[in-house]
Amino acid sequence: MTLPPTRWELGGQANDGYGRKFAELVASGEDVDGEARLADTLLPRHGRVLDIGSGMGRVAAALSVRGHHVVAVEPDATLAEQSRRTYPDLEVLPLDARSLDPDALAGHGSPTSYDLVVLVGNVMVFLADGTEREVLERVRSLLAPGGRVLVGFHLRGGPPTARAYPVEEFVADVGASGLRVDLRAGSYELHPPDDGYGVWVLSRDDAPHVMTSLGHPNPIGATDG
Score class of each variant (00 low, 15 high):
155 L>A: 15
158 G>F: 06
142 L>A: 04
48 R>H: 13
178 G>C: 07
119 L>V: 01
36 A>C: 05
118 V>L: 08
148 R>V: 11
201 V>S: 03
6 T>M: 00
175 G>A: 11
142 L>R: 04
26 V>K: 02
93 L>Y: 00
111 P>C: 00
148 R>W: 06
129 D>C: 13
45 R>H: 13
191 H>R: 14
49 V>S: 04
198 G>E: 04
63 L>A: 00
155 L>P: 09
156 R>M: 09
95 L>F: 04
103 D>Y: 11
69 H>E: 14
84 R>L: 07
97 A>P: 01
194 D>Q: 12
102 P>W: 01
1 M>V: 15
181 V>P: 05
72 A>P: 10
220 I>D: 07
182 D>H: 06
196 G>W: 11
20 R>M: 13
40 D>C: 13
220 I>F: 01
37 R>H: 05
93 L>N: 06
75 P>A: 11
26 V>N: 04
140 R>I: 01
37 R>D: 10
178 G>Q: 03
203 S>Y: 00
156 R>P: 06
42 L>Q: 00
86 T>Q: 14
158 G>R: 10
86 T>L: 13
57 G>A: 09
121 G>C: 14
194 D>N: 15
206 D>I: 08
16 D>E: 11
54 S>M: 09
47 G>K: 07
62 A>P: 07
222 A>I: 12
139 V>W: 04
41 T>R: 14
12 G>E: 01
131 T>H: 06
172 A>P: 08
174 V>C: 01
192 P>W: 03
178 G>M: 03
21 K>H: 14
147 G>D: 06
162 A>W: 07
215 G>K: 05
198 G>L: 15
77 A>P: 08
137 E>D: 12
204 R>H: 10
216 H>C: 12
212 T>D: 14
84 R>C: 05
172 A>D: 13
165 Y>H: 12
62 A>C: 02
66 R>A: 15
119 L>H: 10
159 P>A: 15
111 P>K: 01
89 D>K: 08
78 T>R: 00
64 S>M: 09
52 I>N: 05
12 G>C: 03
115 D>L: 07
129 D>I: 12
107 G>K: 05
